[in-house]
Amino acid sequence: MVRMSDIARRCGISRATVSAVLNNHHEKLGIKPETAEKVRATAEKMGYFRNEMAVAIKTGQNAVIGCITVGLSSEWIARSVTGLLQTGQDEGYLIKIVNLETCDGVLDALRRLVRQRMAGIFCCNVNVNAATGRAFRELCARYEMPVVGVNCSESIGGGHFRSDDLQGMELAVGHLWKLGHRHIAHLTGDPESMTGPLRRDGFLQAMQRRGAAVPASWVVMGSYDPDIAEGSAERLLKRSKNLPTAILCANDEVAVVTLRAARKLGLRVPQDLSVIGYSDMKSAQLADPPLTTIRQPFEKMGARGAAVLLDLIRKQSKKIPDVEWLLTKLVVRASTAAYTSSK
């Protein structure tokens, strides 16, 4: 078995220098880049592998990040975790994923990961009540376990990363406004979710900035459940008077069933009604017509969360953001068009 001392003799330097390079501490210690490159090349040529078990015993942690997700089958969660996987693996960390169907098992999942000496905890879609959040936070603090979350309850502690829904709704309303639409309705998401009320508020604020009054009946309390959302869309569009010329939906699934509801009622999209989604899932591209939508940076949210978590693990950062909002992007497709008075 090749040891660090063997590499040191081959390179003609101290074992401490080799250790610093192979443990990624060389920049902090001022070791020259050419020396670091020589050590890495020699280690690879000699077939050196770091003894991760020995490192874990010495440091009290594995080079493994524990990831707790709720609903990994959801596209946005999978894309967020992809950002974690790419960033973590590029930095030499393995990722252990514990996926749950509901948040009921979050504390048990955390205890299992803590017992396995994870280097840090990455959470995605972990939305818990205050008591569970406090217990989660206290357990992480007791074992000095750094934690970050993507679209999670802030009560679990750590740094949080989300897309800027207020900015996203401003982009969506701004797009429809430029197309000449003034009668814009909003199908909201679940009122108990984090994103539903935030996107509703973003919609209302964007309309208010333009001096546009929004009838209460045009802000339809909906759901992310497609069946419920479709019923809400049908009720909105069945009115014989005062119909909106555009509907801004809380996510792409809601927008897709709104297209279906419009088709049932003989309304053409976008000729009679413009529809805009939110998130830019695969369903947005496959819809008929393809959906104009707001793209959320899911992979970037995961990668940014992973980068901050790695800094915390390496103790390269003591200050982390309570919430870091990442910008969204307007994606224009075929479900929106300019308003004409014949609509």
Rank of each mutant, 00 (worst) to 15 (best):
V2Y: 02
R3K: 13
M4L: 14
A8S: 05
R9G: 04
S14H: 14
T17N: 08
T17I: 12
T17L: 12
V18N: 15
H25Y: 04
H26D: 12
K28E: 14
L29G: 01
I31Y: 13
K32F: 11
T35S: 05
A36R: 15
A36V: 13
R40A: 05
T42D: 09
E44G: 09
Y48A: 09
F49N: 14
R50Y: 01
N51T: 04
E52M: 08
A56Y: 06
K58R: 15
T59S: 13
T59W: 02
A63H: 11
G66M: 02
L72K: 02
S74V: 13
E75G: 06
A78E: 00
A78K: 01
V81H: 02
G83K: 10
Q86S: 11
Q86M: 12
Y93F: 15
Y93G: 10
V98M: 02
L100Y: 10
C103K: 05
C103Q: 10
G105I: 01
D108F: 07
L113H: 05
V114H: 07
V114Y: 03
R117Y: 11
M118I: 14
M118T: 09
G120K: 03
I121G: 04
F122D: 01
C123M: 14
C124M: 10
N125K: 13
V126T: 11
V128K: 08
A131M: 07
A131Y: 05
R137C: 07
R137P: 02
P146E: 01
P146H: 02
V148N: 05
G149A: 01
C152T: 07
S153V: 01
S153H: 00
S155A: 15
G157Q: 06
G159P: 07
G159L: 07
S163I: 01
Q167Y: 09
Q167K: 07
G168E: 00
E170N: 13
L171V: 11
G174T: 03
L176H: 09
L176T: 06
G180L: 01
R182S: 00
R182M: 00
R182H: 01
H183D: 14
I184K: 03
H186Q: 07
T188M: 07
D190L: 07
P191R: 13
E192H: 07
G196F: 10
P197Q: 08
P197T: 03
L198D: 12
R199Q: 05
R200M: 15
R200N: 12
R200E: 15
D201T: 08
R209N: 13
R209K: 13
R210I: 06
G211N: 02
P215L: 02
Y224K: 10
D227H: 12
I228K: 08
A229D: 11
E230F: 11
E230M: 15
A233G: 02
E234N: 04
L236P: 01
K241T: 12
N242S: 01
L243I: 00
I247C: 00
I247S: 00
E253I: 10
T258A: 05
A261S: 01
A261Y: 00
G266R: 11
G266K: 11
R268W: 09
S274G: 10
V275W: 06
S279Q: 12
M281G: 12
K282S: 12
L286S: 12
L291E: 00
T292P: 00
I294V: 15
P297Y: 03
K300E: 15
K300D: 14
G302R: 06
G302Y: 04
G302A: 07
L309I: 00
S317F: 09
E324I: 03
L327G: 14
T328W: 04
V331N: 04
V331C: 06
R333I: 01
K343A: 09
K343F: 06
